[in-house]
Amino acid sequence: MASLTFHPLRRRLALAGGHTATAAADAAGGRRETASYRPAKLVEGPLRAIAVGAPIAWTEPVAFLDGTQHVELLGYLGTDPVLGADVRAAVRVRRARRLTLSTEAHERLVVARPHALARLAPSLPGAVRAIPVDDAEPPHPIADAERAHALVDRARTALEIEVARRFRAVEPTTWCLVDGSLATSPDWARDPQMLGVVKSHATLPFTDDELHTYLTLPAGHRTSIFAPATRQVAPVYAWALRLHEWEGKDLFHGLLRIEAPATEHTLVHADAWSRHLLAERAPLAADRRADRLLYGIHDVERYLRARAGGG
């Protein structure tokens, strides 16, 4: 069901002569990923399971960074799809066990082919940013919608980078756990107090026996550190960390990929950081991804959804 958030935009689309649609777009609520294999380079010896030791909670403040996106098909101008998106990002900091907002950003978008946007632009509210879809390709409603989605993903990432920048401007040394890869930003990839927590395993770094070792990692263990091959702009080091027992559940149950700056410092401190991350297993988030979703990340996500009106 379409949310009321985009109701004004749909009215303007109708006024511009378009046909409104009320269905939410496919994958309306998150980044879309394609399953793939990209071989990684091991930097800590052969791939093996390493016990990290007992969980130790961070005693100093820790920040959590996440973003959300909500995309809806507003309708069509002719046969061109027009998508609306609400993207948000925030950093919430935990002090004395309580999470409070540090900074947030919000943007409302309309994404469509340039000529469609040209018809719509005069009636768009000033707070809505129009993003044109590349019109080099011939019009195709489904392909255009997918390209629009990619643009929304990019807008969300830009917003996350922006809130991280603002956060770092005021708290340069506070630990910051990012939902997703650090490789999206060179600043993040260099930040010694930042870790990327990746829940998705659509892209796998190993095959064969190494993949077996990777996916059957026992709880409380990490893998050897590797450098993932990536299309992204910044090199990072990564390792898998199992938060919960997977036996009897799923190979991916409780399995995270942790990213850190590609430095010697990471090689030295990976165990200590892993112990801190293990402590973040509790409390358990009220989410179907609770096995991999750190509570702090869940808190940011929930905050952003509440700000967006629960959509």
Partner: peptide
């Protein structure tokens, strides 16, 4: 161990 949770639930 609940008392050791790094984050308090809201």
């Amino acid at each position: 161990r609940t008392a050791d949770d790094p984050t308090l639930r809201p």
